[in-house]
């Protein structure tokens, strides 16, 4: 596999959690300085987490939604041109998770807002020329349970509404050339292999997004999962972890921050225990030709993470 075809997600920038100097991430200059550094790290493709939150507080310097891009660049084409100037010639994908909208006891609000903004995000992905739109099919299980303590009894109803929403998105995606893929985070109502019945209920155009760390934390061997599902995989995220969820952290309100024992759940690629070289080799052997994205979410240092990830990829055979 040619590692030059593997992209990097902009989720390596910590937009939401406290740390010194994070305020710079809200200004346009930070991102425009970042893009050439991404290219210098050997990446030509990026992934953008779509985050509606940045349009609500006038923080349009964060290039994570259509409003921000239109405010700062006029339109997606101008933004792509700006990326191209920095040597990034492709926005491979856009991701969307609905956690922002799980904030009260109204399930109608959750699905209404999620559906609306997921539609916006999908259209934005098309404008950016993305290959895939990766959606998380649920908010954090623990956050849902906080606002809806009876969620276990209502999971079938939730799944039905989610299915309806995803069918609508699938229909829109089919007309745009963007592949709709389902993320399989370990904290989801549809974690691990629970994603499969949801996928079964959707059109065949909808594919799986394999996240190697999330599968590992959910207790599933990513190599086995990939081998079994290879024909349904539309995107692969190379994520790393050393975390073992022995206290049902996945059920907590903030599952990426285990409350019993603080730890960095998602490690920089190559520094955890997931054998990412084996995964890439397996994908190669199985003839997988779809998008592959590295993710260093939760990194303590995005610039070190870029180089660590490149150092890992340099160990792969071209």
């Amino acid at each position: 596999m040619n590692s030059e075809q593997i992209g990097i997600s902009l989720d390596l920038i910590n937009r939401h959690y406290q740390e010194p100097n994070r305020n710079r991430y809200e200004s346009k200059y930070f991102w425009e300085e970042l893009y050439p550094l991404i290219r210098a790290s050997g990446f030509r493709a990026i992934e953008i987490p779509y985050e509606p939150v940045w349009q609500f507080g006038g923080r349009s310097g964060v290039p994570m939604n259509r409003y921000c891009i239109n405010t700062k660049y006029g339109d997606a084409a101008n933004y792509r041109a700006k990326l191209a100037e920095a040597g990034i010639d492709h926005v491979a994908g856009v991701t969307f998770d609905p956690n922002l909208f799980m904030r009260n006891g109204s399930i109608d609000f959750y699905f209404g807002a999620s559906g609306h903004f997921a539609g916006e995000a999908l259209a934005h992905a098309a404008d950016l020329g993305a290959d895939y739109f990766a959606i998380s099919p649920s908010a954090y299980y623990g956050r849902i349970a906080h606002y809806h303590p009876d969620i276990d009894a209502k999971i079938a109803t939730f799944a039905d509404r989610e299915t309806d929403m995803l069918r609508g998105l699938a229909e829109k995606a089919e007309g745009t050339g963007v592949t709709l893929v389902l993320r399989n985070e370990y904290w989801s109502l549809f974690r691990g292999e629970r994603i499969l019945p949801l996928l079964d209920a959707l059109p065949s155009s909808v594919k799986l997004d394999v996240d190697t760390a999330s599968l590992t934390i959910a207790g599933i061997d990513p190599a086995d999962f990939i081998t079994a599902q290879i024909d349904r995989i539309g995107c692969v995220h190379l994520t790393d972890t050393s975390f073992v969820d022995d206290a049902e952290t996945w059920k907590t309100a903030n599952p990426e921050f285990p409350e019993q024992r603080a730890t960095q759940v998602f490690r920089d690629p190559g520094t955890g225990t997931v054998d990412l070289r084996q995964i890439v080799s397996l994908l190669d052997r199985l003839g997988y030709a779809g998008p592959i994205m590295c993710s260093a979410r939760q990194t303590r240092d995005p610039f070190r993470a870029l180089l660590r990830t490149r150092a890992l990829l340099n160990q792969l055979q071209n």
């Binding site: 959690y17 740390e19 010194p20 903030n254 409350e259 603080a262 960095q264």
Partner: peptide, 29 residues
């Protein structure tokens, strides 16, 4: 104006610090 603070209280502060030896542990609870 703290951005999201992910923990209430970190019970394993020294261990958490040693994971990466940065100041992240000092701004996480």
């Amino acid at each position: 104006h703290w951005k999201a603070v992910p923990y209430r209280e970190i019970p394993n502060f020294r261990e958490f610090y040693y994971e990466d030896k940065t100041n992240t542990a000092y701004y996480s609870d």
